[in-house]
């Protein structure tokens, strides 16, 4: 692999634990690039993110401030990191940090020349759970009927619009399946105490969970999409193993979503296939999934495509992939010298 373009990419989400972040899979994909010779700079929030210690994948790492510390802190830290590393691209991989990176996208480009390829704030907001049903209705994409409720008094009226079971969801996280109105009430109070109002009530759809990792160019074109059916799910609801499926209907649905939103960047679309074979869109995650390396394994290197889009290099949409490839996740104990932990804990880099 000669003549590859040398670039430096900052990547977050190095928490390759039992409920992993997408950082390491993204990095593995980039390291396998045929176009780029990539130096990886890890950006971590915690001192025990496994990626910090995976030196064969992550060339050097820096702690960055938690999203709650604000954009200003982030910019200061990036200024230091960039003065040492000269980053070409950053790929943020956490939902919680995206708001700040999107907000600071222009400043990061102007001040440091670092490029990103992120959804706009409008796109980011348009996929919020509370508005997804209307989005689906407007764009001919099936989304289970859902409704926001603001008080427990509204629960008694739900039976006119929903049938049991229904899913009670928090604004950001959490979902529970309720079979009786008492359960709805109990979940409503639990979830609203944690995530605030509104609480989202969604019609439960039973069926098979299928997800798509996809990437959009920001003009409505889908650059790549690979569907995966979960084969085994951990107690945290994460796929332990999955298989890439050949499903043109699902890919068409993904293309429709990306076109409707003019989605810019990577995403994960969560669908459910009911017993009649209909697909319902459950959620749009605004970043690559942790299983994105499966797409690379099937012949669609989405992280590499994202880097090309960010750098303004030519990108040809992927048209095919090898269905039937599987991923099986495993854990692995690294032996780490205390000196390394000391470095990240005291000077914030390793």
């Amino acid at each position: 692999m000669v003549n590859r373009k040398k670039i430096t990419v900052g990547v977050t989400g190095l928490n390759n634990i039992d409920s992993p972040g997408p950082g390491i899979p993204v990095i593995r994909s980039l390291k396998e690039s045929k176009i780029y010779d990539v130096r990886i700079i890890g950006l971590s929030y915690e001192s025990l993110e496994p990626g910090l210690y995976m030196h064969e994948l992550v060339d050097y790492s820096y702690q960055i401030p938690l999203p709650g510390a604000g954009v200003e802190s982030l910019l200061q830290r990036l200024s230091y990191i960039n003065s040492v590393e000269k980053l070409d691209v950053i790929i943020p991989n956490f939902d919680a940090e995206l708001h700040n990176f999107i907000k600071a996208e222009k400043q990061i480009l102007d001040a440091f020349g670092i490029k990103m390829f992120l959804p706009t704030l409008e796109q980011f907001d348009a996929r919020q759970k509370s508005v997804l049903y209307n989005f689906g209705k407007e764009n001919g994409i099936k989304v289970p009927y859902s409704k926001m409720i603001f008080s427990a008094a509204e629960i008694s009226k739900l039976q006119h619009e929903f049938t049991y079971p229904m899913v009670v969801k928090g604004k950001f996280y959490d979902a529970s399946i309720a079979y009786t109105s008492d359960q709805v009430t109990s979940y409503f109070h639990k979830i609203s105490a944690k995530w605030g109002l509104p609480v989202i009530i969604q019609q439960f759809v039973s069926g098979q969970e299928v997800n798509v990792t996809a990437i959009g160019d920001g003009n409505g074109n889908c650059i790549g999409a690979v569907p995966m059916r979960k084969l085994y799910i951990t107690d945290k609801g994460k796929a332990w193993a999955g298989v890439a499926t050949d499903d043109s209907e699902l890919i068409d649905s993904a293309k429709k979503v990306i076109k409707a939103l003019k989605w810019k960047g990577g995403n994960e679309l969560e669908f459910i296939r009911n017993n009649d074979g209909e697909y319902f869109l459950l959620e749009i995650n605004p970043r690559f999934p942790a299983w994105v390396y499966l797409a690379t394994g099937c012949g669609q290197n989405h992280p590499e495509a994202l880097v090309s889009l960010a750098l303004g290099d030519k990108v040809k949409p992927f048209n095919e992939y090898i269905a039937g490839k599987m991923f099986v996740r495993y854990s692995y104990d690294m032996i780490v010298d205390l000196k390394e932990y000391e470095k990240i804990s005291t000077i914030g880099e390793v």
Binding site: S47, Q63, I64, L66, A69, S73, Q76, G348
Partner: peptide, 15 residues
Amino acid sequence: KLNTGISNKFGTRTE
């Protein structure tokens, strides 16, 4: 004490 996990040494500099 360094709590495992978040040390966030640079998080609140501006503060």
